[in-house]
Design a binder for these strands. Structure first.
Lengths: 347, 347
DNA sequence: ACGGTTGTGCAAAACGTTTTGGATGCCTAG
DNA sequence: CTAGGCATCCAAAACGTTTTGCACAACCGT
């Protein structure tokens, strides 16, 4: 139907990249043959193949991955949905995810939502329009169950550091928050502490609750709880208020994340108390600043990298096979980093 | 040629997503009409349009963006090439880039290279295979000029925080490193310091050299230079060695980045010197830990977010127009953050 | 001379869109 | 009665690949 189907078009004004047809025409073969030479999918006569390869080099031909993906029905690209890449936890997680994707030849689109639901929706649209083969979901907040349920099952999605109860058929990778709390509890108990202040995160976050539960169980002492919001200011405020109200009811403070721990530390120092001389302080996360602070902070190292890597590996395992994923959950180990902010209590 | 061109296929075992043909068939129109209804590209009779829309909803039809991109000749996706997303500087930069891309309806593929040349090459391949419409390049090391030259001019590339001399037609966004050094010089001079130790980064990095030059020019005092490698250990080592060799020849230390400043700070403290009582310390970058450290570090805030955002905006401005970009360079302002690690010199 | 195998390469369909040039029918103005 | 305009829709080409069935020739052993 088309005239001169594989012929070279007359020079056009705008230089368009060489296509497989151009290569075929210049080498005097059909596009089929070129494809086979490049993919090795079927044997081709060595002389012909050499001729094709030489033309490929001369024209600088690179196959259009779009067309390839269209034909293949998959793009070899996945998405990573997180709230804030400038948060070191998610940056580490992203690094792990990217590594896993790269290992299997996948690209990864960064979907930074800023906790914005519209933005999240727009990114989830990429999976419905099949521009990405799957999504690693780490929204950082109690995820909207409805939104997820509409997608999971129909599309490949893996949850990283998210808890969605009662969701069947889910791929989940998460840190062992409960064990983290337990480690801190044991550490403080062994040092001789018997009364502690626990600064928790929001009650709605399962990870935060798990940290507190683990701690209380292992510490087996008197624990006063105060609810914070994971920000430095809240740690400062909660501790400062207790100090005003007549002194700390404890010899140790366990904050559910490092930022609140820093806030607590500042408040203590301002009140003339020394850390760890008068009070021990423990955080959670092991962010970069933890080891740089003075004193360096005893804290629980979260395997953010491994969480990202594991969730992505799980996702890709099924994406690449095109199967429907059975439910599976990976709980990754945490590690207590004992540094300078903890010591036996003063008598 | 094809029998029953728009007919619905008999039920197949595997449920494939609805295509525009399925919608057309179910609505009793041609795919052309469906396309026009959805895009508004040409007027369609309102009754027909309503019918089509209802079918679209019923079937849950979402256009395949791959096919759309193939036809359009562009994917609305760009790449961001950086060495290490877990470095807060690049994380901030990535955030700015992602914001800019999202604003213009573009997706962004995260290309984390880990300083690995092969990995970088593989990612650059995405642009040659036209899977991405452009690339924001922030390799974090003196970039291989050859590799870049082969691509720039042929493909849309913008440089973020990179210097490539003599490269024509380049889009560049970078922080004003020279001004940053100058600000530190003026600050220390005003405090009364006359003798300073400067810990520089690698000589091969233009940004590092610019910081030192700006400092030396503005300080107008005696400056001892030592070359480090931007890592904490090197700051510690260089200062510790000077202390052993008979004391510091200065009242202030300017490190070309915050990590080295922390190293210096630790070395000073270990030697029994107080900061800023005996020696003032200044860093560069304003990483998260800078404000959390004790004492909080005086440093130069780098507009990492703006660098990423500006480079990406520049790139997209031209990508979306399909024009060849003329050279343009944006030098973004830095800001001196005066904190607790600087004070007038002791007499 | 014949059926079978092997090596080689091509045609055509398929992936799912958008775009463009008509075709059709109807209405209106001359 | 006709030329033109308008509203509505469709057919077919195009984007650039991969895949599959087939054609053709050459060679083999019988």
């Amino acid at each position: 139907m088309t005239p001169d189907p594989y012929g070279v078009r007359p020079d056009s004004a705008v230089r368009r990249p060489a296509s497989i047809k151009d290569v075929a025409a210049a080498a005097g073969v059909s596009p089929t043959t070129v494809s086979h030479v490049l993919s090795g999918n079927r044997p081709v006569n060595e002389q012909t193949a050499a001729r094709v390869r030489s033309v490929v080099n001369r024209l600088g031909y690179v196959p259009a991955s779009l067309a390839r993906s269209l034909q293949a029905g998959a793009t070899s690209v996945i998405g990573l949905l997180i709230p804030d890449i400038s948060n070191t936890f998610f940056a580490e997680l992203a690094k792990g995810a990217e590594d896993a994707a790269h290992d299997l030849g996948y690209g990864m689109i960064l979907c930074n939502t800023e906790f914005d639901a519209d933005r999240e929706d727009r990114y989830l649209g990429m999976i419905r329009s099949r521009f990405i083969d799957g999504m690693v979901y780490a929204s950082g907040s109690p995820p909207s169950r409805r939104r997820l349920e509409a997608l999971m099952g129909k599309f490949p999605i893996a949850l990283a550091d998210e808890e969605v109860e009662g969701l069947e058929g889910a791929l989940i990778a998460t840190a062992d928050h409960e064990a983290g709390g337990r480690l801190v509890g044991e550490h403080l108990r062994q040092l001789g502490h018997r009364r502690a202040l626990m600064l928790t995160g929001p009650r709605a976050l399962k990870s935060s609750v798990a940290r507190a539960q683990g701690f209380v169980r292992a510490f087996r002492g008197e624990v006063v709880e105060r609810v914070g919001d994971f920000k430095e200011a809240s740690g400062h405020r909660l501790v400062a208020r207790l100090l005003e109200e007549g002194g700390l009811p404890c010899t140790a403070v366990f904050a559910a994340n490092d930022l609140m721990a820093f806030g607590a530390l500042t408040a203590l120092t301002e009140a003339g108390l020394s850390v760890p001389g008068d009070v021990s302080v423990v955080g959670f996360d092991d962010i970069r600043a933890a080891s740089l602070a003075h004193p360096p902070l005893t804290t629980v190292h979260q395997p953010a990298y491994d969480v990202g890597r594991t969730a992505t590996a799980q996702l890709l395992q099924y994406v690449s096979r095109g199967e429907v994923p059975p439910a599976s959950r990976h709980t990754l180990p945490v590690e207590l980093k004992v540094r300078g902010s903890t010591a036996p209590p003063a008598r």
